[in-house]
Write a protein that binds this DNA or RNA. Structure first.
Lengths: 210, 210
DNA sequence: ACCTGAACACCGTTCAAGT
DNA sequence: ACCTGAACACCGTTCAAGT
């Protein structure tokens, strides 16, 4: 029975099914999405140009609501707190859909929404004393850390696995001093974030951070 | 003519073809590798258990020679220089095969060679004043930045793309202040590396870095 | 031991056909 | 407009067959 009178598909439902599929199986195939929706594969192409466009839609859902936090930064406020907040919510957005990260980080970001977000972050960096020549490099470095951390959060356990032999060395010791696997990635992110912001503060004009 | 007397395949040649295929087409398929070697697909399985094992072999080739630099760090030396060198060569190893990064960062590292390398890096962090409780988190944070930067190096242009509208804002200005696309990613990596090491130095015991 | 070729269960995508 | 079903060119992997 082609074309039932009650609409079976729309982009929203397809994206939701795609995210569910990523969460459960860790990979995105059009066939799996269609099975999840009890629909033939080819029906998806009525709503979505191709797999790449579906990935674009997923990216938008994952990163939506990322910059609203930034829009309300008071002009007189310091740079460290709002910058930290942005980085935290940036990573959290990706960490909410960990197995989608690999899919989303291969293509450059193109949305106007994102561009305005970057505008504001660059303002914060200027307040921290970052020169215009280093602004983009600093912003990119922060993003590299955030995305690397999001990827790390997607990994089930640590980036390293040791056997009994290796466990006797300093690495084994350090691994045993780690908190529970659930907090492992969070701990690493918090630590790196502090290092980066401390590094920024070290070369910032005095008393500009509070 | 099955089984020619001159051996057509071995693991080394297969890995080389796989890396070439990744460099040219950006993705790894057994079929493409076999075509590149003028051999039937199924012949590959005589030398390699499956695609996952081929990925493991690629990982070994890419990361080989990463820790030799570390083995010769004098006991009395400072922490900052050798740590920086390790991070630089770590990223360089992945950046040499940029399109392979996505393939290599999904699985945890398991080799003994890598474990001994981490042992030495943890020693450097201890010298920098990092507590045992924070050692693994700090190491992971550094790795997150390195891998994020390697992924960034794989991206042809910047992580953001702007149209004429967005180009008028601070983002457009910052993008225009950037160096050539070839040095863009290197600049970001150097900048972030400095921030992280400055951050470590900020909480390190005085005069321990030189 | 090492390679071929057919086979199987999967992909993404297109297109004619139905309502 | 929206969905089906067949079709095509691709995957990864297995296996019997050849030398």
């Amino acid at each position: 029975m082609p074309r039932p009178r009650t609409r079976l598909l729309d982009r929203e439902r397809i994206v939701a099914a795609a995210l569910a599929e990523l969460e459960v199986n860790g990979q995105l195939t059009m066939s799996a999405v269609s099975r999840r929706l009890s629909v033939h594969v080819s029906s998806l192409y009525e709503h979505v140009r191709d797999r790449a466009e579906l990935v674009d839609l997923i990216r938008e859902v994952v990163t939506s609501g990322l910059d609203e936090d930034l829009s309300e930064v008071p002009a007189g406020a310091g740079w460290r707190e709002p910058l930290e907040q942005w980085l935290v919510s940036y990573r959290a957005a990706f960490a909410r859909h960990p197995r989608a990260i690999g899919l989303l980080t291969t293509e450059p970001i193109r949305s106007h929404r994102a561009a305005r977000g970057y505008d504001r972050v660059l303002g914060l960096l200027a307040r921290a004393g970052v020169s215009p020549q280093e602004a983009m490099a600093t912003l990119t470095a922060l993003e590299c850390f955030v995305l690397g951390s999001a990827l790390d959060a997607a990994a089930p356990d640590a980036m390293v696995e040791v056997d009994d032999d290796d466990a006797r060395g300093p690495l084994g010791e350090a691994l045993r001093a780690e908190p529970s696997p659930e907090r492992r990635a969070d701990h690493a992110f918090t630590t790196g974030l502090r290092l980066l912001l401390d590094g920024l503060a070290a070369s910032a004009p005095a008393s500009s951070s509070s």
